[in-house]
Computed example of a mutant assay.
Amino acid sequence: MPEAPAEASQKLPVTCWFAGLTTLDVIHRSAVRPGPNQKITAVRQDVSAGGPAANAAVTAATLGARALLISALGTGSVGSAARGDLERHGVEIHDTAEGREIPLAVSAVLVDDATGDRSVVSPDATLTDGLDVSSADLDALPRPDVVLLDGHHPDLARSVLAYANALEPRPLIVLDAGRWRPVFADLMGAADVTARSADFRAPADVARSPATVATHGAAPVTWCDDDGRRGATDVPTVDVRDTLGAGDAFHGALVVALAQGADLEAAVAEAVRVASLRVQYVGPRSWLENLSCA
């Protein structure tokens, strides 16, 4: 992987870009799951911004990084609600749909009150496909130490990747690979680190990143760095209250640690710490009060 800037090793503030999806999450917590044609009463409701890139940016900002989200929000009421939540949590936004009203995705989330498991129904980025960003726009942004791509908005991902590859010094590129999408065929070989879920499967002919991280739920996180060194990082046993966004928290913390100059093993350990904290708290943002860089 490219070397982190000299100042990063001193844990001075770092700049991280998060390019990808923003949604508005409407989250209901329920003691039972509804059956066909059944209505139930939730025990709790939350509304917040969601999406892999957006949630990772919130985590990074809370950890003290300069977190810049490159995403499409637009001027509509749904985008305004998502923007307000992100800005309240310290995220800077470059809106590729600035000045336009777009049909921003609303995600319907159900969290099981007994187990903390979440179920999500969302159109993701399909309502606003084709949104892009120009090199001139990116030139106006603070230079990143690390760039995370989540694979949503494929044109956006390709443009940000091409721009980052041309920078000197070149930032680290981290790919959030939760579910296979065709755009990953263009991204994986160019990324320095692919952070994937246990369910992620790429076709055999797709180029791989030099370094990989794989999460396996409560089982150890496995990793392989660009020198071929392999390891597994244990996940602590905690009281799981809410799993929504745990993977996004993991990726946000991983990006910040890498930007600060940590090697992959240390960055994974920090990401595990942060994700393990997130699942212990009910609601999408309450856990942030207990998050620190320590």
Rank of each mutant, 00 (worst) to 15 (best):
D192L: 02
S197Q: 09
L175S: 07
V160K: 01
A190T: 01
I173E: 08
L187C: 06
P182W: 07
H153F: 09
H152S: 00
V147K: 03
N165V: 00
R170T: 07
D176L: 02
A198F: 13
A162N: 04
A190L: 06
T222Y: 12
Y163E: 08
A185S: 08
R229V: 14
G151V: 06
A166W: 03
T215D: 14
R143C: 01
T212N: 13
D234E: 12
L187D: 03
P182G: 06
G151P: 07
P220H: 13
A214H: 10
L175D: 02
V174M: 06
A211Q: 13
R208T: 15
E168D: 10
G228F: 10
L172D: 00
V160E: 03
L148M: 13
T212Q: 12
A157N: 11
L172V: 04
V213K: 09
A219V: 10
Y163C: 00
R170E: 07
W180M: 06
L172Q: 09
M188I: 04
H216E: 03
V160D: 00
G151R: 10
W180V: 02
F200T: 02
G217Y: 13
A232L: 12
G178L: 08
V146A: 03
V235M: 11
A218I: 12
A190C: 13
A214S: 12
H152G: 04
D234P: 09
V213L: 11
R230Q: 13
V146D: 04
D226V: 10
F200D: 02
L149P: 05
R143D: 04
D139G: 06
Y163N: 01
A177H: 05
L149G: 05
V174S: 04
G228V: 05
R229D: 14
P169K: 04
W223H: 14
D234S: 15
A202W: 14
L156G: 01
A204S: 14
A166C: 00
L187F: 10
R201M: 08
V147G: 03
D205L: 05
N165Q: 11
P144Y: 08
P142W: 07
T233K: 01
A219E: 15
Y163V: 01
P203C: 15
D176C: 01
T194S: 15
V213S: 05
